[in-house]
């Protein structure tokens, strides 16, 4: 038996909105640790890892580890039927072939049950080793989203370069080139407006903007995004989910042939 009650149901709605275009179907894993997912996009270029820790749920009952295969557009469609202030409960029986999403309005005057069919998904779980990164950039998530969107009007790829001067996002396309430099500014009034760069050594890597733009769909989940860069390693674009966990996107840098 599985029963997970999430007071801030909007978090789950936002999580689905952020990954449903990247990943078609995925197994949601539930254990004492929490509710998690690891999935690749259909071309196996990007990987998403989600964790919602059990402590973040108002009620968390998971009698045995369970893996539930879901089609993400269908799950997103059902969660769209929940109000932004609704409490969402995820319920499933051991060995069952359905999952139920229950939506409760804040004053309990409306309760809805949506039952969705589960599916069997063969997915390979990848081991993601802890890594030392050459540079870690923390910046407002809205700023990063704006930069990716702006650059994708000019080119298909972004070169992210971190030096002691700051972080530079560059692209080029048929009509011209664009460079956006963000300097470290730790002394802003609000901590969420800060750009903080931890650099061990300079790094410059090229990424497909199509994927970066897809990752920025998680912007409503967090004010701050963390971008961890190392040559020879996939970039990690991380959005922390308030008090609960994270959503991390991994993308390998493009290599010159």
């Amino acid at each position: 038996m599985l029963e997970l009650r999430l007071l801030q149901g909007s978090l789950l709605k936002k999580v689905l909105e952020s990954i449903k275009d990247l990943v078609t179907e995925a197994n949601f894993d539930c254990s004492a640790t929490g509710f998690s997912l690891q999935a690749m996009d259909s071309s196996h270029v990007a990987l998403v890892a989600l964790l919602l820790r059990s402590e973040g749920f108002e009620h968390f009952r998971c009698d045995r580890n369970i893996s539930m295969g879901m089609k993400l557009v269908n799950m997103a469609m059902m969660l769209k039927c929940a109000g932004n202030d609704d409490i969402i409960t995820i319920k499933a029986d051991d060995g069952g072939d359905t999952v139920t999403f229950m939506f409760e309005s804040p004053n309990q005057d409306k309760i809805a049950d949506f039952e969705m069919k589960l599916m069997n998904i063969d997915s390979e779980h990848l081991g993601i080793p802890e890594a030392e990164y050459q540079a870690i950039v923390r910046m407002p998530s809205s700023e990063f989203a704006r930069i990716c969107k702006d650059l994708s009007t000019i080119g298909d790829t972004v070169i992210i370069s971190v030096t002691k001067e700051g972080v530079k996002f560059s692209t080029k396309g048929d009509i011209g080139t664009a460079n956006i430099v963000c300097r470290q500014n730790a002394t802003v009034d609000k901590p969420e407006d800060a750009i903080i760069i931890e650099m061990k050594e300079p790094v410059s890597l090229t990424f497909a903007l199509r994927y970066m733009n897809s990752f920025t769909k998680a912007t409503p989940l967090a004010n701050i995004v963390t971008i961890s860069l190392s040559s020879e390693l996939p970039v990690v674009v991380e959005y922390k989910i308030a008090e609960m966990g994270y959503i991390r996107f991994y993308l390998a840098p493009k290599i010159e042939e």
Binding site: G127, I128, L233, P234, Y250, I255, E256, E257
Partner: peptide
């Protein structure tokens, strides 16, 4: 030109 490696090249299967 540049090549996009798959993510599976970097992380091993569990």
């Amino acid at each position: 030109g540049s090549k996009q490696p798959a993510i599976t090249k970097f992380f091993s299967k569990l």
